[in-house]
Design a protein around this nucleic acid. Structure first.
Length: 608
DNA sequence: TTCGATCGCGCC
DNA sequence: AAAGGGCGCGATCGAA
């Protein structure tokens, strides 16, 4: 119901008595400067729409309610709604859980195509009907034209311009659905799955803090890099024009027109010209065709860096030059995080061995805030190690525990070189077929098959693990990872389950480490700013470096080895930026009572 | 003008 | 029978 002066007392009374509240916000937009204009709360008895245009100062009542109720809060997009609640001063009680509907939906079943509220509702016979609302906004042109950093206009729907009564109707529906779905998921989850859901709720708090802290960018550096690489694009495009007599267009179709030979085809029958195809062609093609291909590869690289990275950083930074990405804790079917706006898990890396590196690096644009340093803690070969441990491949485990490199250890066992062993480890873990392995090894399918047979002959436990996982998946529809997360797959996709098992197992290791660090009274205060699958990045003050050994210990102790394979973490440090060339190995040692090394000294050490 | 499919490519 | 896993996002192209 719409909360008015007349019914507000009853509404608050009802909400006060609830142990679970489903909460939704309606906002002026999605950006850092936007605010909530309505708060909708559902409980078992009803659903209530709070809007200050209906009851002046009604959020004051909600401030009191949220500050005092220990009720569990349930959201469809938790961190967004928490931010919007805080935008109007509504701060939830510290003991309240922040449950996330999508997390629960993923735990129920991880392999649906979509997890937005409408899809979730539909799955359980409900309908989120927002077509008419969208139509109303369109028909009445309730869009604001906002200009971004580059002065470009972006049209944004303004739900706060919709008449309150219309808005109320649709808003009530979403909160009601959220509450209903929560109840459904509760029934569907068993105790161990409920534990997972609760763990994800804790993780929401960890990630909320990470998003709020964000990552600082060096704006001058971004500008410099962008303009330099923009000039490179122009130069190369001019060369392309002179060579082909055609304007550069980045599509295989356009490229086909200027080449003297037929490009291979994609699965859909279109001309194919990705980097792998073009690089391969360069070994056979000469002259003008080769020159064109080199130009295309170069232009693509520069354009990618400009459009995907530099440009977006300028558009997305706040007034303090800080980027606040969105972390999606239930963004993947394996249990990994995903990141968006922008994605900070795919920032280009530079090859430290490249003899002619790019003048600018994208990672260099990310810099620690005043007085702080980046500390990166990376799990070493996490997924390979976990695979060996799951399989119980004793000799490999023993060798790795004695300091051997994983790929070398497997190479020794199979009796081949490290390089093909590495390729095979990779291929086997990812479920590659023989033809694919042959391509990767640059050999014939027959030879690849022989090698694979030899591999499994000597690493029989790995083969048994893979076969077992696939068989279980086919028979039962899902497998469990170490953390109790169920990984579902349709029969025809069970070949991917070994990979999901390992990838998801690694994801849960990092998630658990993040929680333990957050829940520690001292470590929880530290600035954790980035997670990249097997890596955590902190931004620390010099006096906080003493905590690193304990962080490392926690990370290394999360995974309960079945067969003695421990996970280890490498630490690196930089006070300059995230770029590889600035990160230096940081020796933590085994003792807790280490002295804090001088940061400058740490940076001059040779990176090993 | 808008939208979806497709391709391509960055990371782990 | 064969299958390289997981993401987000930009550009292009053709249809709506």
């Amino acid at each position: 119901m719409k909360v008015t002066q007349d019914n507000i007392a009853d509404a608050i009374l009802s909400l006060r008595g609830s142990s679970v509240l489903a909460v939704d916000t309606e906002t002026t937009g999605l950006s850092e400067t936007d605010k909530a204009f309505a708060v909708i709360i559902a409980n078992a008895f009803g659903v209530y729409y709070f809007d200050e245009r209906v009851v002046p100062n009604v959020f004051a009542e909600l401030r009191v309610l949220f500050a005092t109720t220990p009720a569990r809060l349930v959201f469809q997009n938790t961190k967004f709604d928490i931010r919007m609640l805080e935008s109007v001063g509504i701060i939830p009680h510290s003991v309240s859980d922040w449950y996330d509907l999508t997390s629960m939906a993923r735990i129920v079943r991880n392999d649906h195509m979509e997890y937005n509220l409408a899809s979730q509702a539909k799955r359980y016979g409900m309908q989120k009907l927002d077509g008419p609302l969208k139509k109303y906004i369109k028909d009445n042109n309730l869009f604001e034209e906002r200009t971004n950093f580059f002065g470009e206009v972006e049209k944004q729907p303004r739900y706060d311009w919709v008449p309150v009564d219309i808005m109320c109707e649709y808003a009530l529906m979403d909160a009601r659905i959220t509450f209903a779905l929560y109840q459904i998921y509760l029934k569907l989850l068993d105790d161990s799955e409920l534990k997972l859901a609760h763990d994800e709720a804790i993780l929401n708090k960890v990630c909320y803090r990470m998003e709020r802290l964000g990552m600082r960018v060096d704006t001058d550096k971004v500008f410099e890099a962008m303009s330099f690489e923009g000039e490179m694009v122009e130069e190369k495009q001019l060369q392309y024009l002179e060579l082909t007599n055609a304007e550069f267009v980045n599509s295989a179709k356009s490229l086909q027109k200027v080449l003297s030979f037929e490009l291979p085809k994609t699965d859909k029958g279109n001309p194919s010209a990705d980097a792998v195809v073009l690089e391969a062609l360069l070994t056979t093609v000469e002259g003008r065709d080769a020159e064109i291909i080199r130009l295309v590869l170069d232009i693509r690289t520069y354009e990618k860096r400009i459009s995907t990275y530099y440009r977006n950083y300028l558009i997305m930074k706040d007034k303090n030059n800080v980027i606040h990405p969105q972390m999606w804790i239930a963004g993947t079917k394996t249990g990994r995080f995903s990141y968006s706006d922008p994605n900070l898990q795919n920032i280009s890396k530079d090859d430290p061995d490249d003899p002619s590196p790019e003048r600018y690096s994208v990672r260099e644009c990310f810099v620690p805030r005043e007085g702080r340093v980046f500390i990166s803690l990376d799990y070493s070969q996490m997924e390979y190690r976990m695979a060996a441990d799951y399989a119980g491949e004793t000799k490999v485990i023993e060798a790795v525990m004695n300091g051997a490199d994983f790929h070398q250890a497997t190479a020794d066992m199979v009796g081949i070189n490290r390089k093909p062993a590495k390729t095979l480890n990779f291929a086997v873990l990812y479920g590659a077929g023989i033809d694919k392995i042959a391509t990767m090894l640059k050999t014939t399918p027959q030879a690849a098959n022989q090698l694979k047979t030899k591999y499994f002959l000597n690493l029989a436990k790995i083969e048994r693990l893979i076969d077992g996982v696939i068989a279980t998946g086919k028979a039962r529809g899902f497998v469990f990872n170490w953390a109790g997360r169920k990984l579902y797959a349709a029969k025809e996709f069970c070949y991917a389950l070994p990979n999901h098992l390992i990838q998801g197992g690694g994801a849960d290791v990092v998630k658990e480490a993040m929680r333990r660090i957050y829940l520690d009274p001292e470590l929880g205060k530290l600035w954790l700013v980035l997670q990249v699958h097997d890596q955590l990045v902190f931004e620390l003050l010099p006096e906080e470096l003493v905590h690193i050994p304990r962080i490392k210990e926690i990370m290394e102790s999360v995974y309960p080895a079945k067969n003695g394979m421990k996970l280890t973490v490498d630490v690196s440090i930089s006070r300059l930026s995230l770029a590889e060339k600035h990160m230096r190995k940081y020796d933590v040692g085994s003792s807790r009572h280490i002295t804090v090394p001088n940061i400058q000294e740490a940076e001059t050490k040779v990176c090993s």
